[in-house]
Design a protein around this nucleic acid. Sequence first.
DNA 1: TGGCTATTGCAAATCGGCCA
DNA 2: TGGCCGATTTGCAATAGCCA
Length: 556
Amino acid sequence: MLTLPRQDWEEIDINYSGENSFASFLPNNSNIHAYPAKLVPNLVHDIINTLRKYNNIEKTLDPFVGSGTVGLESKYLGLDFYGSDMNPLSILISRTKTLTMENTPHVINSLNSFTELLEKEYKETHAISCVSFKNIDYWFKKENIKQLSYIKTRLDYFLKTKSRKYQEIYSLILLTSFSSTIRKCSLTRNGEFKLYRMVESDIAKFNPNAFEIFSNTVNQLLDMLNHTNEIYEKKTITEITLQNAKELLNIDDESIDLIFTSPPYGDSKTTVAYGQFSRLPLQWIGDLIRKYLKIDVYSDNCDEYLLGGKKSGIFLDKEIVVNSSETLKKLELQMTKTINDELSRLKQAKLQLSFIKEKINNNALTLEDLSNNNVIYELVWERLRLNTLRKINSRAEHSKQQAKIISSEEVSRFFSSYNSCPRKKYRNNKVVEKTIPSITETIQRKINAMPKRVTEIINFFLDLYKVVIETDKKLKLGGHQVWVVGHRTVLGEINVNMRDILKEWFNSMGYNEVTSLQRKYSFKRMPHHITSTITRSEQIDTMMEEYILIVKKERK
DNA sequence: TGGCTATTGCAAATCGGCCA
DNA sequence: TGGCCGATTTGCAATAGCCA
């Protein structure tokens, strides 16, 4: 096997437009189901194709399969694909995405007649809401709960009557479409991966028809599957399973030619909470997914089992993992220093606080005593501002923006005239005294939380390292690994260079870096203070970077 | 751990000055 | 007064997040 010449990589233009497309080989811009942080299909396609020029690739693996982009592109290129994920919804969507239909015209006809009749039947029946879970009323309008309940009941009945041969195909298509319909009918804001309710005024205007959305989604999905199925030149194996990337039991050791993945960039606390993203669909149809697709929809939130999660079962020796990467070693030192500095600041504040309490008791507190300690001064300031803001908002005399300005001004005035006269000082001392209990609590909470946070971040890397060991076990000698990552910020200020950490780990395991690509992705918008009328040439480029690390296994 | 905000870019809609 | 055109305003989707 040859190593790829550098110019092969330079020939790829990875700054694609239309990043949210479904597949590299279809012009279609719509998608089968929303999913957080999808890979760009063209990127996957171009990199696999470039690697294929000099290397034989038959089997690919994505241990964090997500919505299944690598699976679909692999299938298009005639490669066998293995995928895993801890989120049941991911397994549903990615299996549907890579589905091979049989007897397509029959499937399409039968599904069309099923969806077409639903609304008519619904109107003729006195349907009742038969699905219920905590807060269902908060996330769905009453009429939609009734509609969705009806669809679910009919869907269950439809699937029950199908032969085993077609049951899986029908289940994948209908349950994926229904899951998407649930999201579209819910009172969540679309752009947010976590659950976030629409504002009341939007809710009043929001009257989705679940039947219309469902039948459109089914049609669109059938259309796409019809297209993709026609394009496949070769029959390939696609095996996507609900399992932990740290232990890929169904895959033979040294059987994979290429590992192509994009891991979570950090632990579930600071990045996408996939469990929350999937919560509503799984509450609605988790039982049907389990019943018809044998996907084990467990009742816990899957975030708990993701990398660094509280139930992930970390067992690796920290020293080995950290010492395998200079960057990670530096990160740990940096984090320790930051929290030590912060902890001593907080402990100082705690001491100062008891001093302040005493001064208040003697009515001897001055502004200097407060502003001596930045931590306390800022906390008192913020507490008073929030109190004032709430008061103003409850009177509803000002707009939210005005209220914000007024409350800040009021607190500024409070502090600037703090010592002005004895009577005022007494009153002001009483105001500050009221804030002391909550501030004491805040400081203590921070003192408790900071060391825990460092442990959580390190635990994430212990888990990720275990995945790297596992993928290495599955990869053939001479095979490649492609990892698409983004850098994160932790503890408010420390940058985590994910690419370098992975590169150093791989180096320590007998891999060489083939190349490292970098591209901007535009779906993340960062604050920049420009007006809406600014001309294009003046725009500040603040898009985020995505790093693509490609390594080759050279020795065992 | 779960409930939720504020600031952005884009582009359609609207405004307002100017000219024929 | 209608149409054109550039400037503003408005509507809306979007955000690997934030905070108690």
